[in-house]
Each structure stands twice: as C-alpha cells, then as structure tokens.
Design a protein around this nucleic acid. Structure first.
Lengths: 203, 203
DNA sequence: AAACCTACTGAACAGTGTTCATTAAATCAA
DNA sequence: TTGATTTAATGAACACTGTTCAGTAGGTTT
C-alpha cells in the first residue's frame, strides 16, 4: 500500500506550495507586509490550513531563509571559482555584494530581519552554515598561505563579513542617504569599497 | 497675555512626555512590540491623543531617532577627543562599537529598522547628519595628512562606517551565531576587529 | 452669561497572527 | 459494501494592531 507514501508526498508538496507562495510574496512586498491571509489567498486555502504545515509565521520565515541560503551558496559556487584563494575571496566579496543589491528583500530576510527569540536558536546555527564554511575555507587558505595581513581566521571572517554586510545593509535599509551620494554612484562605490578592502588586507 | 505662550509650552511638554514614554518603551520592548495603546497607557491618555501631537507611529520613531543621534554625538564628543586624527578615528570606532553593544535597541532604531517610504525621505538626510560630519571631518583630516591608505574620502567613510555597522548589526540581529563563537568572546572579538581594521588602513 | 475654541476621548474600521470546534472526505476494518 | 475511524480543511472567533472621527467637557474670549 503506497497510500502513506503518497500522503507524505502530498504533505511535502503542500509545504512546498506554501513556502513558494510565501517566498514570492516576501520578495514582492516584504515579510511584514505579507500576511498569512494573503499567502492563504494565493494558494487558495484557508489561513488556518497554513498552521497545519508550519507552526507560525516565523517558521515560514526560516523555511524561506533556508532556500535563500541555498541560492546564495549556488551563487558562490557559480561565481567564485578561481583557484587562487585571494582571487576567489575577491569573487566571493563581489558575489555577496551583487546578491544583496539584486535581491534586497531576500537579503533582508536572510541577514537583517529581527530573529524572534521564541524560535529555537539552533536555526541560526544551521541556516547558512554551508555559505559560511565556504567563505571560511577560502579565508583559511589565504591565511595559511600567508597572503593576508590577518593572523586569526575568526577575526578575518568577522571583518570580511562585517564589511560586506555593512555595505549591503546600509544600502538596503536606506542609511546611506545621510552621506548624500548620487543614487547612481552607489553601486560603483560599493564595489570600489570592496576592492579597496581586498587591497588593504593583502599582505 | 501669556496664555498662548503657556499653551505652546504645554504642547511642547506633551510632545516631550510622549517621546519620553515612546523612547523608554522602544528600548524596553522594541519598536514593533510597542503599540500606540501601550504608550497612551503609560502617559495616561487615550491613544487618539497621541495622534494630535504626532502624525503617525513613524513620526514618533523619527523623533526618538533624533534624540538617539544627539546621544551618539555627545558620546563621540566625550570619548573621541584626541588631537591626533588617527587616534581620534580609533576612538570613534571604539565609541561606536560600545554605543551599539550597550544600547542594542537604540542602535536598532537608528540604523537597522526599516525606514518606511511613506515618510519624507529628507529625514534620512537630516537625522544623524552631525554625527557623520564629525566622522567625515576626522577621516578627511587623516587623508589630508596622508595617514591613511585611502585616497577618496567617500570610500573611506563608506568603508569605515560599513565595518562598524557590519560588526554591530551582525551582533544586534544575532547573525554571528552561525560562526559559533563563544558568547563571552564576542565583545572582545569586535574590538579586535576594529583594531585590526585601523591597523590595516594606516599608511 | 453666551459664544467659541481647543484638548481630549470612545467607539469604530480594517487589518493582523493564531486557535479551535466543527465539517467533509478519504481510508480502513468488517 | 457498509459502518467506523482517521485525517485534512475550514469558519468563526479572540485579542491584538494603527488610525480616524464624531462628539464632549472645560477653559477662554467676547
């Protein structure tokens, strides 16, 4: 009897249908402006049904986040392929910047949105782990080969990420306006900033 | 007749009473979890009254934000007093970090919270301007004296701020958990990261 | 004392996340 | 095939949210 298998499959399909709709609407309108009722409307089910598949709106967020990190990882693996670790590091930086600038709502979801504390904190340790391992390995290789002016890989990782995240999140949350930069220059300036940073950390 | 003056004074007092309560509750519970009704309760007025003094919840946010930037400016002026611009830059960096770590909710309000687009964008150009001028001047002085490995002050400002903001905001929004650092080390690591950054940008 | 003005409020509107008893349908056992 | 049981889905409700507005009480002016 394949009934239980089919049911399990249907359950997974339903879960997927929900997060597909959720992802779509989160990107279109943002997390806060997307209501469970809107998502329910989109998939033509009642709002209560969603709660049969996801415990609450946060769990929905984390599911979408997970898919987003998969996308970022794919992007890294596609765009940061250089064998030279230093060059690869630069590719990663540029890739990160582009990813954030091209998918601001997605970036928001992954790196900015308030992480509610009622959820298992473990999520933050698993979601995105692979992405960070990839960066970590590249940084480690650079340091091992003595290519960087960093000694401690933790400091290097922290700094590298902080620079990337700082740049993207200031743009995504409109905080650069205070610097009164021309809107068109911003993209170019960010890339220059990363270039400069890479230049600075090179030994 | 001092009646109109008294009334004006009372109006200002009421405005102040409202944002005092708002600031207090924003810091205690965060912006999103603070409702107009809660604020109204705290000052023992009806929710509708608040709308006589502030157009909407966002305007309340910007008023609180303004006070917060005043606080940050005071902090800078108190803690970053060195005559040597390079040393002063370091003091600013440390000061910024401490400010963010000691007042995470305030920091959130100032630099992370989604800036609604229905508000006059001009706010983002005025709120915090003084703080940035101060940093800008120090950076400018450093560059003029040839103390930094940056040429373009805009890139320098962008990078310096991105590093600071990146570090603080990753902590404030719990994104460092993925790096599995010991909770106690974080404060120290952030300061080391800033130290390293200053070291890197020194000519 | 009557008119006016202004500060304030209660009640309502449309929306939110979430829960739960009830219903309808699919599955299972006889 | 029929009856019992499990499962999936829902409508309605609850307790919130930001915001608006007609109505009121009281101080101010004429």
């Amino acid at each position: 009897m394949g009934i239980v298998e089919r049911k399990e499959r249907e359950k997974q399909e339903m879960r997927q249908r929900i997060i597909d709709a959720a992802m779509h609407m989160f990107l279109e309108e943002g997390y806060n402006k997307t209501s469970i009722r809107n998502i329910a409307d989109a998939i033509e089910y009642s709002p209560a049904t969603i709660y049969l598949y996801y415990k609450d709106k946060d769990e929905l967020l984390y599911a979408v986040q997970k898919e987003a990190f998969d996308k970022l990882l794919e992007t890294f693996e596609r765009e940061a392929t250089a064998l030279d670790p230093l060059l690869r590091l630069e590719q990663i930086g540029k890739s990160y910047l582009r990813f954030g600038m091209n998918n601001p709502e997605l970036y928001d979801l992954m790196f900015i949105i308030r992480a509610p504390m009622n959820v298992d904190e473990h999520i933050h340790q698993t979601n995105g782990r692979d992405c960070f391992s990839l960066v970590m390995e590249t940084l480690g290789e650079c340091i091992d080969k003595g290519l960087l002016r960093y000694e401690d890989p933790r400091i290097a990782m922290l700094s590298f990420w902080a620079m990337g995240h700082g740049l993207v999140s200031l743009v995504v949350r409109c905080r650069l306006k205070v610097l009164e930069l021309a809107e068109n220059d911003i993209d170019e300036l960010l890339h220059k900033a990363i270039d400069e940073y890479i230049r600075l950390i090179k030994r």
